[in-house]
């Protein structure tokens, strides 16, 4: 071991270090056209084709190596991406939900501004447990000023009326319920009648005489008769007209624009104008 520190070794080391330092010094002193820089350029010209060929040969193995060496990373990245994907998907759902809610509320606000009625907004929180009833439960009750027989609407038209009230919720009888009846008139002909529901959740306009000039497509609105619904609320359009021989009246079907199976937000009109004496609505 001691012999390794011989004078010869040290001299050789010093020579090599000095030569290296001289190279460093010359390299920094000369410009890009200097002999050392040009030597490097020649070296690059020599080594480039070798690297190119080697790269072509090694590439398939290199790709395989990269794949194997990245398996762990890719696996954890896959888990992270799945989590992020789930989070983003939920965000998208929330965003779409907010957008839909915003559109519904904007329509309801528009209705309030157009009509000038005092209203209370509510959300549908329940459906009837029976197939025979067409009602919904809303999350507004007497504590919000809701009373029985108050009209319930959405932007697409008349929904029904409040049937029962509790402090924090109410039951709304839809106009498609077979027990419901709404005083209505055909907007173009001014023929008055009653819109009622049936067991199939369809709307019919009754008591329109055979000599009426009502036609398919005519708009049906509330007449204000009965004192429950204010005049002028949109009910629907006439979709079919029949004239049975055995009856004095036409059989008219009305199609509502309201999707009763997808009601979410509704408006309760809390100060409906009572211009006409009350008549019983439920038959």
């Amino acid at each position: 071991m001691y012999a390794r520190w011989s004078r010869r070794n040290r001299v050789l080391l010093i020579i090599l270090v000095v030569v290296s330092v001289v190279f460093l010094s010359l390299y920094f002193r000369e410009n890009k056209q200097g002999i050392l820089h040009r030597g490097q350029s020649v070296g690059l010209a020599i080594i480039s084709p070798v690297q190119r060929v080697a790269s072509a040969v090694i590439s398939p193995f290199s790709h395989a190596w990269r794949f194997v060496s990245r398996i762990g990373y890719l696996s954890s990245q896959n888990v992270d991406l799945k989590k992020e994907n789930a989070r983003l998907r939920q965000q998208l759902v929330d965003r779409n939900e907010l957008q839909a809610e915003s559109e519904r509320l904007r329509a309801l606000v528009g209705f309030k501004q157009r009509t000038g009625y005092e209203t209370v907004a509510a959300t549908v929180v329940g459906r009837p447990p029976s197939n025979w009833e067409q009602t919904v439960i809303i999350n507004a009750g007497s504590s919000q000023g809701i009373k029985p027989e108050m009209p319930v609407v959405v932007a697409d038209g008349l929904v029904g009326q409040v049937a029962r009230v509790s402090p924090w919720s109410s039951e709304v009888q839809l106009i498609i319920d077979q027990r419901s009846g709404v005083g209505a008139l055909v907007q173009t002909t001014r023929d008055t009648g009653v819109v009622d529901g049936d067991i199939n959740a369809e709307l019919h306009l009754d008591f329109i005489p055979k000599n009426s000039r009502a036609r398919i497509g005519d708009v049906v609105i509330t007449s204000g008769y009965g004192g429950v619904f204010p005049k002028g609320l949109f009910v629907g359009t006439i979709s079919d007209i029949k004239e049975p021989t055995y009856s004095l009246f036409k059989e008219i079907e009305v199609r509502s624009e309201v999707d009763f199976s997808r009601l979410e937000d509704v408006i309760i009109i809390t100060n409906p104008p009572r211009t006409v004496d009350r008549e019983p609505v439920d038959r």
Binding site: V17, S20, V21, V22, Q40, G43
Partner: peptide, 15 residues
Amino acid sequence: LLLMTTLGLNALSKT
């Protein structure tokens, strides 16, 4: 020389 690094750097460190 062939890898275009500063001439003398690797020579010195590897020596």
